[in-house]
């Protein structure tokens, strides 16, 4: 699939945003951005390289580069990108208790979609999802596209606290909260797994490139 060259624009005075024009999830864009991120990382001159679904933020060192120079280097890197397939990571099974106190927004999704709770569970857990990126808090995983009928916008006012392990939907995105945090996603369930634990030898349960499979559980997962 052919995609347009992305828009490269300043973000404040010490960062640059590379943004692809696409609506919804695009695997091609995701692949391009992943390659761009790893190429830039290997150059070892950038302060932060933060990928998201359709854009990449690069923070440059203002004491060594001007905005124009940084933009030029990023453009050159973009021109040398290829479309080789991405690394396939490990498959991670995530047990989830859907609805009830663990999924306070299940009713919202049911009303909007006209589906029953069990249909929603079947659809949401019936797909394998790719971990596209990590963030916005430690352990949070942003997954590939959720089926159309389940797509729903974020809350108008974000909740002050969403518990760790909450499984949420935001537009076409789905993901799992790695920590308790403020957040605006529609929460449909929760997993007891700890996605991020700074005291573990490997603090993160998963990384970008892995595959997530939700396993619905009717048993009491939480004690």
């Amino acid at each position: 699939m052919s995609i347009k060259f992305p828009k490269i624009s300043p973000y404040g005075d010490s960062a640059i945003l590379v943004d692809y024009e696409t609506s919804g999830y695009s695997e091609t864009v995701h692949t391009r951005l992943s390659h761009l991120a790893s190429m830039l990382r290997s150059q070892d001159i950038w302060k932060e390289i933060v990928p998201s679904y359709k854009s990449l933020l690069i923070v440059f060192d203002v004491s060594h580069l001007s905005l124009g120079e940084a933009t030029g280097k990023i453009e050159d890197t973009l021109k040398s990108l290829n479309d080789s397939p991405l690394r396939q990571g490990k498959v991670i099974e995530i047990p989830v208790t859907y609805g009830g106190e663990y999924g306070p927004d299940m009713a919202t999704i049911a009303d909007a979609s006209g589906l029953s709770k069990s249909e929603i569970i079947d659809i949401h857990s019936g797909e394998d999802y790719r971990v596209c990126m990590m963030g916005f808090i430690p352990g949070f995983c942003f997954l590939s596209e959720v089926p159309n009928v389940l797509q729903h916008p974020r809350h108008d006012t974000p909740r002050a606290h969403v518990p760790a392990g909450s499984v949420g939907i935001a537009g076409w995105q789905t993901g799992i909260y790695g920590l308790g945090s403020p957040g605006g996603w529609q929460i449909i369930g929760r997993t007891p797994l700890t996605l991020f634990d700074p005291s573990r030898e490997k603090p993160f349960l998963m990384e970008a490139g892995d595959t997530v499979r939700f396993i619905p559980s009717s048993k009491a997962l939480f004690s």
Binding site: G12, Y53, S55, L56, F136, D156, T157
Partner: peptide, 18 residues
């Protein structure tokens, strides 16, 4: 209303629908 999650930095001003 529904934007794809995108990068932020300290000093970014976000506007939620409210």
């Amino acid at each position: 209303r529904s934007m794809t999650s995108s990068p932020l930095l300290p000093g970014t001003l976000q506007i939620p629908p409210d």
